[in-house]
Nucleic acid binder design. Structure first.
Length: 429
RNA sequence: GUGGUCGUAGCUCAAUGGUAGAGCUCCAGAUUGUGAUUCUGGUUGUUGCGGGUUCGAGCCCCGUCGAUCACCCCA
C-alpha cells in the first residue's frame, strides 16, 4: 500500500470532497461574475525565471521546480499573479480598462505540509488591472467580503485586516532608514505580534529603530489615518466598513505590494489567513521591462484554509447541505421488475436522459426490493417500474409513496412534468 | 530545511514482549413486484516500509516514508 500513496502534500478528492470542491468553485465563480469579473486561466507550469524575475533567487527554495527533458528549468506555479501580469501586459491593448479578471486553479509550493498547508492547493484569484483608484481596492475588499458571506460565514466569524505599505515606506523615509533595509524591516513588522519583544527590539536596533517608536507608529495608524480615508468612505457607503480592522502589522510578505494590503481571517479558530492581497502597481512594469506601466490590485483565496473554516462554521453547513442535496443523486430510477421488459426499460432510460432527466437504473438483474433501495440511496424522487403490465408502467413518487399507472408512450412527458412540481411529502414538512 | 508526537481492517479504535480483535461501513441472505427497522452470515491486515535485539516484536532499538504540531516560510 505504501507505494500507492499520494505524493507528499497532495490530496485525493473522493466524491464527497470533490462535491465540496465544486461547491467552493461554484460559489467563487458566481460571486465573481456578480461583480463583473471574467474568468481566465494560465499554465500550471512556467519557466522558473518568471518567478525569479519577480521575487529574486532565494524564493526558489519554496518553488516546486525541476528540469525537463531538455534541461530547461521549470516550476509548478506557486501563484498566478506573475502569469497574469505576463498575460495582461503582452495583450493589454486588446482589453478595455479596467480589466476585472478572475481565475480558479491549482498552485504548488514545496513546503512542509501541515493543517491548512498542503503542497498543492487551489486558489481563487481576483485582480483588477488598469485602474489605480482606491475604488478598485474597495471593490476587491467588497468582493472578498461577499464571497465569505455567500459561504455562510458571518460577520462574527471573520474580518478584514487592512493596512497600507505606504504607511511604512513613509515611516522609514521619515526615520531616515536606508531603502535597502525595507525588506528586512517589513519582515520584522510581519511577525511583530508573534515574536518575542526582546528579539524584535534587537533586530530593530540593528537598522536604527526602537520597538517603542514602531509600536507608537502602529497605534497611531488607526482608521482615521489619511491613508485609509478614500477607501474607508467607499466601504462605509457600501455598508461594509464594519468588517474591516486596521492592522499595520499586515504587510503580506516581502514581494510586490506597493499600497493597500489586506487579509481575510477567521475570528474564532486562529487559522491561517483565508485570503490575502493588495495593490501591486509596479509589477506589470517589472514584468514587461518597463514597456507596460499598468496599475493593478488583487487578492487570492485558498481552498484549504477556507475548507477548514467552512467545516467549523455551523452557519456555513446549511448552504453546503443544500448544495450537496441538489447536486448528488438522480431525479428518477428505473426499476426492471420483469427482465423480459428490460429492452423497453433501456429505451426509456435513454429517452428520459435525452430529455434531460438525471436517471439511473440497475445494469444487472436485481431483486425489486434492491432496486427500490438503490433508488432511495440515490435520492431519486420517482421510481419507474417496468413489469408485466407493459406497455403500461408504474410511476411511484418515492416521497409521498403514491403510485400510478401510465402508458409507456406518455412516460417521458409525464416524468418531465412531475419533476417540475415542488417536492411534497412527509419527509420535508 | 530543523525539532517534538504519532502510524494496527475502507473508517474510529483495542490488544503486560506470548494465537491480531471490536464497533461502524461494505457485500449477501432472511424478503421471487416495492424502500424502514431487525436478525443471520461473509470479505478486508506483509500491524506504513526496511533492518536490529529476543526463544518470541504491533509493542523495545535504528533507519526510512507519511500524518500532525512547533519553527521556517507565507509570492
Amino acid at each position: 500500500m505504501a507505494s500507492l500513496r499520494t505524493v507528499k502534500g497532495f490530496r485525493d478528492f473522493f466524491p464527497e470532497e470533490c462535491a465540496m470542491r465544486n461547491y467552493i468553485f461554484d460559489t467563487w465563480r458566481s460571486i465573481a461574475r456578480r461583480y463583473g469579473f471574467v474568468e481566465y486561466e494560465a499554465p500550471v507550469v512556467e519557466t522558473t525565471d518568471l518567478y525569479r524575475k519577480k521575487s529574486g533567487d532565494e524564493i526558489t527554495s519554496q518553488l516546486f521546480c525541476f528540469k525537463d527533458k531538455a534541461d530547461r528549468e521549470i516550476s509548478l506555479r506557486p501563484e498566478v499573479t506573475p502569469s497574469l501580469a505576463r498575460m495582461a501586459t503582452t495583450r493589454h491593448r486588446d482589453f478595455k480598462k479596467p480589466m476585472k479578471w478572475f481565475q480558479i486553479g491549482s498552485c504548488f509550493r514545496y513546503e512542509e505540509p501541515q493543517e491548512g498547508r498542503t503542497r498543492e492547493f487551489i486558489q481563487f484569484n481576483a485582480d483588477i488591472l488598469g485602474d489605480a483608484s482606491s475604488g478598485t481596492d474597495a471593490e476587491l475588499i467588497a468582493l472578498s467580503i461577499d464571497v465569505m458571506l455567500a459561504f455562510g460565514i458571518l460577520g462574527e466569524d471573520f474580518a478584514i485586516r487592512l493596512s497600507n505599505r505606504q504607511l511604512w515606506t513613509q515611516y522609514l523615509e521619515d526615520q531616515k532608514v536606508p531603502v535597502e533595509h525595507t525588506a528586512t524591516f517589513l519582515q520584522i513588522v510581519d511577525k511583530i505580534e508573534r515574536a518575542k519583544p526582546e528579539e524584535t527590539a534587537t533586530k530593530l536596533s540593528a537598522i536604527g529603530l526602537t520597538l517603542e517608536n514602531v509600536r507608537a507608529f502602529m497605534a497611531a495608524a488607526d482608521e482615521n489615518h489619511p491613508a485609509f480615508a478614500a477607501l474607508r468612505a467607499d466601504l462605509i457607503a457600501r455598508g461594509l466598513w464594519k468588517y474591516v480592522r486596521i492592522d499595520a502589522s499586515i504587510v503580506r510578505g516581502l514581494a510586490y505590494y506597493t499600497g493597500t494590503v489586506f487579509e481575510v481571517f477567521d475570528l474564532k479558530h486562529g487559522l491561517r489567513a483565508v485570503a490575502g492581497g493588495g495593490r501591486y502597481d509596479k509589477l506589470c512594469a517589472l514584468m514587461s521591462d518597463g514597456n507596460v506601466d499598468m496599475a493593478a490590485a488583487g487578492f487570492a483565496m485558498g481552498d484549504v484554509v477556507l475548507g477548514i473554516l467552512l467545516s467549523k462554521t455551523p452557519s456555513a453547513q446549511f448552504a453546503i447541505t443544500e448544495y450537496l442535496n441538489a447536486q448528488q443523486g438522480v431525479e428518477a430510477y428505473v426499476v426492471v421488475a420483469d427482465e423480459a421488459q428490460r429492452p423497453y426499460a433501456l429505451a426509456a432510460v435513454q429517452a428520459l436522459r435525452a430529455a434531460g432527466v438525471r436517471l439511473d437504473y440497475s445494469m444487472a438483474p436485481q431483486k425489486v426490493g434492491k432496486q427500490f433501495q438503490a433508488a432511495e440511496n440515490q435520492k431519486a424522487r420517482f421510481a419507474i417500474v417496468f413489469g408485466a403490465e407493459y406497455p403500461e408502467v408504474q410511476i411511484k413518487n418515492l416521497v409521498s409513496r403514491e403510485q400510478s399507472l401510465i402508458s409507456a408512450d406518455a412516460l417521458v412527458s409525464a416524468v418531465v412534468e412531475a419533476l417540475k412540481q415542488p417536492i411534497v411529502g412527509p419527509l420535508l414538512a
